[in-house]
């Protein structure tokens, strides 16, 4: 059984995301490093695609991801891999919204859990403000429009 995503704010600068998968770690790992697979899940809500998905998943290698909803092509992310093994990926990433967010240090572990995988992603930001910016971004659906939309919804709540 898969379990819902658990999201924990740890200390002042960390975000911890955990999720279980029914698939073994090798498959979950592949979904993180093969461009043909990455672009099928690392996308925003309906209508968003990922035309740019270049990555060189080895220590020192870099990546560049770009998303579009057909009209807006400004949203992209770049980063570098520090460690890539089937059990663990450590990378640095920054998002361009279009202004760059501070570097996010992301440590993703794939642990065998029965026949499935327990994935733990620890994101460490340089400051509490940077962590707030990441939470506010929410990837493509965190762009200006939805930011404004959410503000409206929350104002009514």
């Amino acid at each position: 059984m898969t379990a819902p995503v658990q999201l924990t704010l740890d200390g002042d600068t960390r975000i911890i995301v955990t999720r279980s998968f029914t698939a073994p770690p090798a498959l979950v790992f592949r979904a993180h490093i093969e461009p043909a697979l990455i672009r099928r899940w690392m996308i925003g809500p309906d209508g968003w695609t990922m035309p740019i998905c270049d990555c060189d998943p080895r220590p020192g290698g870099s990546f560049r991801f770009g998303w579009t909803n057909g009209t807006d092509t400004s949203f992209h992310a770049t980063g570098e891999y520090l460690e890539v093994t089937p059990e663990r990926i450590i990378h640095i990433e920054r998002m361009f919204l279009p202004d760059p967010t501070p570097d996010n240090h992301v440590d993703t572990r794939f642990a065998a859990d029965g026949t499935g995988t327990r994935m733990t992603m620890v994101m460490t930001l340089p400051s509490p403000e940077a962590r707030a910016a990441v939470i506010a971004s929410g990837m493509p659906d965190g762009l200006e429009d939805s930011y404004a939309r959410l503000e409206t919804i929350l104002a009514k709540a």
Binding site: V5, T22, V28, M139, G142
Partner: peptide
Amino acid sequence: HWEGAFDRMDALI
């Protein structure tokens, strides 16, 4: 946002 991404990963896997 992550829930959506991981659900897509499930389908892919």
